[in-house]
Computed example of a mutant assay.
Amino acid sequence: MSTSTYTVTGMTCGHCEMSVREEVGDVDGVQNVEVSAQTGTLIVTASGAIDDAKILHAVEEAGYSAVPVS
């Protein structure tokens, strides 16, 4: 299991959170997605290594932008 945290910009409400959660949840290997519009945080837990590029692309597909938190 691995966990990665991202900062997401542009989210303002629960619908935003749901859109990000659905897109990121469709990425292969992702087991859990926690997202907060209030804090602008996305936490992804996966069964194996997390491919940041795939997560960032999924966030973009939802209509937002994200960067990994170091």
Rank of each mutant, 00 (worst) to 15 (best):
M1K: 04
S2L: 01
S2C: 03
S2H: 02
S2W: 00
S2R: 00
S2K: 03
S2Y: 05
T5W: 09
T5N: 10
Y6D: 12
Y6E: 13
T7I: 07
T7K: 05
T7Y: 10
V8S: 07
V8P: 04
T9Q: 13
T9V: 13
T9P: 05
G10W: 15
G10V: 15
G10D: 15
G10P: 13
G10R: 12
M11F: 03
T12V: 07
T12E: 08
C13W: 07
G14K: 04
G14T: 00
H15I: 03
H15T: 09
H15A: 07
C16E: 02
C16F: 03
E17A: 15
E17L: 14
E17R: 13
M18H: 07
M18W: 06
M18K: 10
S19Y: 00
S19T: 08
S19V: 03
V20N: 01
V20G: 04
V20D: 06
V20Y: 10
R21M: 07
E22Y: 06
E22T: 09
V24H: 06
G25L: 07
D26L: 06
D26F: 01
V27G: 04
V27T: 02
D28P: 14
G29N: 12
V30W: 01
V30H: 00
N32R: 06
V33E: 01
E34M: 10
V35T: 06
V35D: 05
V35G: 07
S36L: 08
S36H: 04
A37I: 04
A37T: 05
A37L: 12
A37K: 04
Q38W: 01
Q38S: 14
T39P: 07
T39M: 08
T39N: 10
G40A: 10
G40K: 04
T41P: 11
L42Q: 08
L42H: 11
L42V: 13
L42A: 12
I43G: 03
I43L: 12
V44F: 14
T45K: 11
T45F: 01
A46E: 01
A46M: 02
A46G: 08
A46R: 00
S47R: 10
S47G: 15
G48Q: 03
G48L: 02
A49Y: 04
A49R: 03
I50Y: 00
I50A: 01
D51S: 00
D51M: 00
D51Q: 07
D51E: 13
D52M: 02
D52Y: 05
A53W: 11
K54T: 11
I55S: 07
I55G: 02
I55V: 14
L56K: 12
L56P: 14
H57D: 15
H57L: 11
H57Y: 08
V59R: 04
V59Y: 10
E60M: 12
E61R: 13
E61M: 12
A62K: 06
A62S: 14
A62P: 09
A62H: 05
G63K: 06
Y64W: 14
Y64F: 15
Y64D: 13
S65W: 12
S65F: 13
A66V: 12
A66M: 14
A66W: 14
V67K: 14
P68V: 12
S70Q: 07
S70C: 03
S70P: 09
